[in-house]
Design a protein around this nucleic acid. Structure first.
Ligand SMILES: [Zn+2]
Ligand SMILES: [Zn+2]
Length: 817
DNA sequence: AGCACGCCGACT
DNA sequence: GTCGGCGTGCTC
């Protein structure tokens, strides 16, 4: 008897065993998708993890309902990768499966259902079966989701299945049909005519001038394109280029000279690649490029430490070209907010249709198409993507590039799998026996430590593009100005003056404030009451545009009170500055400025995001106010002044990485200032101009910054010297959550002793009506992650036996950020 | 994560 | 006496 172990898209540990019915026995492949019934009601698309034969009789095992693919959708390397993530990040395979596949491929909702025309009812339908049957007979084949919409049945899969069992309907079992590739009518010659045959045809067309002309044009086009006998062109394109009417081409098809066929085209047409055209590396880039290869001889991972504007991208492009030449694929990761049109356009111009782009702003069908293209089209050799692109099926992977490797957004926070795509990418490269290049101007402390200790190779690129100088960074002492009563708002007089100067020279300004909304706090001047979220332990941010108060943790929206609900006086006051308020303030202070704001709220759609960038690039706007969004992946060449409005908020954040983050962020924002042949100016508003981090930024001194950070890390037992595992406990009742946290920490101490920290009540101790406690484990690097994991899970089982804790949620965050 | 099974309060 | 509340436990 044949069995399969499958992964179901649920947060359950382990795999589940199903029988393979004889009919499907020769169709199952590891990595392909199957439909299974799981539990009493639910049907899921599962992934085959293992196929095996066994004579041992097993009870309570269901059969696979259908097989969806004749080829693996998930490659063996990917399954191995999933296993690693599951084990290292302490999550289930099901959670990874859910995160990895675009949901269009998890076809509960996507399956097409056909009606069997020859069906004759032998037994009556149930009410729901009738409903499904009726909507199907009214129209074309329907997707299950469409059936659900039309019938109002919330889960139609069982009824579709029972109709299929009765022979009334069938499911298309070949993914190629299911996945609706875009096709377009194309034309080509009916056969490979000889010269004389063609002459004869043209002679016969003497009386049909239009047709003759059309054929001649077609043949000319064919010749231009290399005279390939199989030459074809999309009909629409041909008509457009030649001005021939459709009926003329149809007549040629009717005559049998041309044939029309459906040619599958991708949704993304980036044109041809132009591998020869791009710029040649300058001597510094050339040197770095060679050093990267030297390092790859011995090291699996190389860090390219290159200052902003040193042209790392050019080096990447060269490395990608090399991989393409070797016939291999490249995965190029960027943080989501750095994946701008600027970079995609740049790569498109070089790699054309070899390039695939993958990130969350693409819809699900587009993502599914990218997945299928990688499985089926050899020529798709370059993938540019955000975090989740590490899950793509990259057969024949030859290089992984992780740019801006220090970015915290590589770490997925919620939900599981809480993986770090930078570290996962290194493991992925290892599975494919290939190399990883990490790039950044401000390496993560962990990465730089690995590079200095020799675990990674290190290549430094310190020379900027010749005509671009590093900006001048000037702190503005807000404490001083405040004492002298000169800080009337968050815009200090020196900043306003420099802004005016820049705008007067027709140059542009970027203002950076890492807080969205209008004011992060509302306070009653009489009784100091502040509005708080009903579900979370945070105060609400006032959003002026939408005239509401918003909880930035759960998204809850509240209306604005006109008077204080506590003391009934109308003395509510805005405290603090968000981007929205700064936008308004700039407009008031400098009325002639053309201010635009870029933050989460103004860039909800892909369109508005690109619009804001395009307008600023075109100088239609001249002051850009934004959150960290303005710091990544954008190069504007007319920005001469950058204002960092509140450096202190970043430095005072209670986290061991706060200084590192502040340094990286401010360095990056500063990098936006400066134009060709003109040095940029960065004004950094702070109450502590002597803060060491600020002087490191001023002096562009990564080495000293690193030195202080690494010492602190060692002293306080933080990464890279120790590995952190955070245990997060959440629940509706505070005392239960607290009880479990205390008890869990206690039993953990039996084995881990002083390595257990907490439990602590986090700064934001309640989110979405759930109280939170955290326990942190600091584990020595040399300890086996697998042993640690087993030990923790053993203790978890032990404490969770207490029935009081059954309603509490617990998860692990390995290498939290 | 769902979903069923099961054991106690307020309603016909 | 039943309807339904959501607490626990299982899903191959
Ligand atoms: Zn009040
Ligand atoms: Zn909230």
């Amino acid at each position: 008897m044949l069995y399969v172990d499958v992964i179901v898209p649920l947060p359950l540990s382990g795999v589940f065993t199903y029988k393979i019915p004889d009919l499907l026995a020769d169709r199952v492949i590891v990595g392909s998708r199957v439909i299974v019934q799981f539990g009493k009601k639910k049907f899921y698309t599962a992934i085959i993890h293992r196929i095996y034969d066994s004579d041992e009789p097993k009870t309570g095992i269901k059969e696979i309902i259908s097989v969806l693919d004749d080829y693996p959708i998930v490659l063996p390397e990917q399954l191995q990768f999933w296993e690693w993530i599951s084990s290292y990040y302490m999550c289930t395979l099901g959670e990874i499966y859910k995160a990895a596949l675009p949901s269009a491929l998890k076809l509960e909702s996507e399956t097409l259902v056909f009606l069997d025309a020859s069906f004759e009812a032998k037994e009556p339908f149930t009410a729901n079966e009738t409903k499904v049957f009726d909507v199907l007979s009214d129209s074309k084949p329907l997707r299950i989701s469409e059936i659900e919409k039309l019938t109002g049945i919330s889960n139609a899969i069982p009824y579709v299945k029972s109709l299929a069992d009765k022979g009334a309907a069938y499911l298309n079992e070949n993914i190629q049909n299911k996945y609706t590739a875009k096709t377009e009518a194309s034309i080509r010659l009916a056969k490979n005519y000889s010269e004389s045959e063609l002459n004869e045809i043209l002679n016969n067309l003497k009386r049909a001038k239009k047709q003759e002309q059309a054929l001649i044009l077609f043949l000319e086009l064919k010749k231009e394109e290399g005279d390939h006998p199989e030459f074809f062109i999309q009909k629409k394109l041909f008509l457009g280029q030649t001005g021939i009417s459709s009926s003329v081409v149809d007549a040629l098809i009717e005559r049998g000279v041309l044939v029309s066929f459906q040619n599958e085209i991708g949704r993304f047409d980036y044109g041809d690649s132009d591998l020869l055209s791009s710029k040649i590396l300058n001597p510094f880039q050339e040197k770095a490029y060679n050093e990267i290869y030297d390092n790859f001889k011995e090291k699996q991972v190389v860090l390219l430490h290159g200052v902003t504007s040193s042209g790392k991208t050019e080096i990447y492009i060269q490395l990608i070209k090399d991989a393409i030449e070797r016939g291999e694929r490249v995965l190029y990761l960027l943080p989501e907010i750095a994946l701008t049109t600027q970079i995609t356009e740049r790569l498109k111009s070089v790699f054309g249709n070899k390039l695939l782009v993958y990130h969350s702003r693409f819809n699900d069908n587009e993502r599914a198409e990218t997945w299928q293209s990688l499985l089926q089209k050899e020529e798709c050799q370059v993938v540019l993507g955000a975090r989740s692109a590490v899950f793509l099926p990259l057969r024949n992977l030859g290089l992984v590039i992780v740019d801006e490797e220090h970015e915290a957004s590589y770490k997925q926070q919620d939900p599981a799998p809480r993986y770090n795509a930078r570290n996962a990418a290194i493991v992925l490269a290892g599975i494919h026996q290939t190399k990883t290049l990490l790039g950044t101007a401000t390496p993560a402390i962990e990465t730089y430590y690995n590079a200095l200790s020799g675990r990674y190779g290190l290549v430094t690129l310190s020379k900027r593009h010749s005509e671009i100088e590093l900006p001048e960074i000037v702190p503005v002492n807000t404490k001083d100005l405040r004492k002298r009563k000169q800080m009337k708002s968050i815009l200090s007089p020196p900043l306003v003056e420099e802004m005016r100067n820049a705008l007067g020279r027709d140059e542009q300004v970027i203002l950076f404030q890492n807080r969205r909304g209008f004011a992060p706090l509302i306070e009653c001047k009489t009784c100091s009451w502040t509005p708080k979220c009903l579900h979370c332990d945070v105060s609400l941010t006032f959003h002026k545009g939408q005239r509401v108060m918003v909880c930035h943790y759960c998204g809850a929206v509240y209306s604005i009170p006109t008077e204080c609900p506590e003391c009934k006086t109308p003395t509510l006051e805005m405290q603090g500055y968000g981007t929205e308020r700064i936008e308004e303030l700039v407009q008031e202070t400098i009325p002639e400025a053309n201010v635009v704001r870029m933050d989460f709220d103004t860039t909800r759609s892909k369109r508005s995001f690109e619009r804001i960038i395009a307008d600023f690039e075109a100088n239609k706007t001249n002051v850009l106010v934004g959150t960290q969004m303005v710091s990544k992946g954008l190069d504007f060449d007319n920005v001469s002044v950058v204002g960092i409005l509140n450096a202190d908020s970043m430095l005072n954040y209670p986290d061991f990485r706060a200084h590192e983050r502040a340094f990286q962020l401010m360095m990056q924002v500063s990098g936006r200032a400066g134009r060709r042949h003109k040095r940029g100016l960065v004004l950094l508003q702070t109450a502590h101009p002597g803060h060491p981090i600020i002087s490191y930024i001023r002096n562009n001194d990564y080495a000293s910054f690193y030195e202080t950070q690494i010492n602190e890390r060692q002293l306080f037992r933080y990464p890279p010297f120790y590995r952190l595992i955070e245990i997060v406990i959440r629940g509706r009742e505070e005392h239960v959550v607290d009880g479990l946290a205390v008890e869990f920490a206690q039993v953990l101490r039996q084995s881990f002793q002083e390595r257990v920290l907490g439990p602590v009540k986090p700064g934001i101790s309640r989110v979405q009506s759930l109280y939170i406690r955290k326990i942190v484990l600091k584990i020595e690097n040399q300890a086996s992650p697998q042993k640690i994991r087993e030990l923790i899970e053993f203790y978890q089982k032990q404490v969770m036996q207490n029935p009081n804790y059954k309603s509490v949620l617990l998860h692990y965050d390995v290498d939290p950020m």
